[in-house]
Design a protein around this nucleic acid. Structure first.
Lengths: 200, 200
DNA sequence: TGTACATCAGTGAACGCGCGTTCACTGATGTAC
DNA sequence: TGTACATCAGTGAACGCGCGTTCACTGATGTAC
């Protein structure tokens, strides 16, 4: 019972699939544990239906698997944001969609989200992970909303908006008993406070 | 070397001091580890200069010590906020002071702050810890700033301000390489956005 | 068509480690008589 | 003033556990001849 007795081994030449299966299993555990330091090789292998040593066929050590997992999760988060913010609607609508996508992700996987932005696990320096695109996209969107905006002010507003969303997401997860407004209401209030509508 | 060889045992009748010393040692470690689940009985005892078993003279088990430590840390945080927000200056000045005290605490002990508001460690139900006073105080202060404010709107503003501060504190700790504004500037912007000054 | 061999995708036993907790103990200090 | 004893503040060895990692291995599948 320590490993699933039914898992078929991958066909010849497809051994690489196990790598993705391990990352997937680790991501699931990460969302349950809420802390990368508690991810254990044995628990991941158990969930993937494989012996603990199988991990070493694809990663040099535990740390490499944990890093790959965090990178994959961050990329998934980033992609969700960028997808929501793209499209041909007006910039403010895209900004609102991005905020809602942000809060939707954090509500779906609160613990995973907390890991991604934890101070305990510094951002990956893997070239496969574009860490800046999200924040830079937010700054660009704010300048689209108000073309007269200076670079510094746009940066400051982006920080204000991002801090608000992050704080809302984390506190809502940590203190559910407090009466939290809906994501829609919070995003609307946040944008109203920090992104004044253009005259007209 | 596993325990400090110089620690004198407490005098007769003063054994209770060790309890505080253990909580203190645990709080220090908590601020280094940033996660209550990584606090180990042995590491705490080592830091307190005592054998691991000494802990059981004052706590039934590890969990009780960890809980007592988190409670003590939360209370210290809460007290710092309430101290900053008291005084006879006008409510907006007190609000600003509270915000600055909030961010000052999180800058001094970022990992400890993160533990206090972690979703992983639900709020204590110990009667010695008043969890609500901070948030309720914020709501009250917002209504002092604008006596015409309805209860719901004051609650919504408190959520907006708290989320902003929490998000700022957490993200600043997690992503130091981003250009963060000063605490003063951020608090000023946050209050300007959510707490309009009364007419006059 | 048959067979020897290489390759591949894993497994299972074993290691040393730090952990939380238990149990029996030690040795200094106060107290009763 | 002396002594037996109780109390107090701890200690140290030992337990069983899950951990990350190593090492030698297994057994199915493809390939060369």
């Amino acid at each position: 019972m320590s490993t699933s007795p039914t898992r078929p081994r991958n066909p010849r030449g497809e051994g690489g699939r196990l790598r993705e299966q391990l990352v997937q299993a680790a991501a699931e555990l990460l969302d349950e544990l809420g802390d990368a330091s508690r991810l254990s090789v044995r628990a991941i292998a158990r969930r993937a239906g494989v012996s603990p040593t199988a991990l070493y066929l694809h990663f040099p050590d535990r740390e490499a698997l944990v890093t790959a997992t965090c990178d994959a999760c961050f990329t998934a988060f980033n992609d969700a944001l960028l997808a929501a913010a793209s499209g041909d609607s007006d910039p403010r609508t895209r900004l609102e969609a991005m905020g809602l996508a942000y809060l939707a992700f954090t509500e779906r996987q609160p613990a995973l989200y907390a890991v991604i932005f934890s101070a305990r696990r510094p951002p990956s320096d893997s070239p496969a992970v574009d860490r800046r695109q999200g924040f830079a996209g937010l700054v660009a969107l704010l300048r689209e909303c108000d073309p007269a905006l200076g670079e510094d002010e746009a940066h400051a507003r982006a920080i204000a908006v991002w801090s608000s969303l992050h704080g809302f997401a984390m506190l809502r997860a940590a203190r559910p008993q407090i009466g939290w407004p809906s994501a829609e209401e919070f995003v609307r209030r946040t944008l109203a406070a920090h992104v004044p509508r253009g005259a007209g």
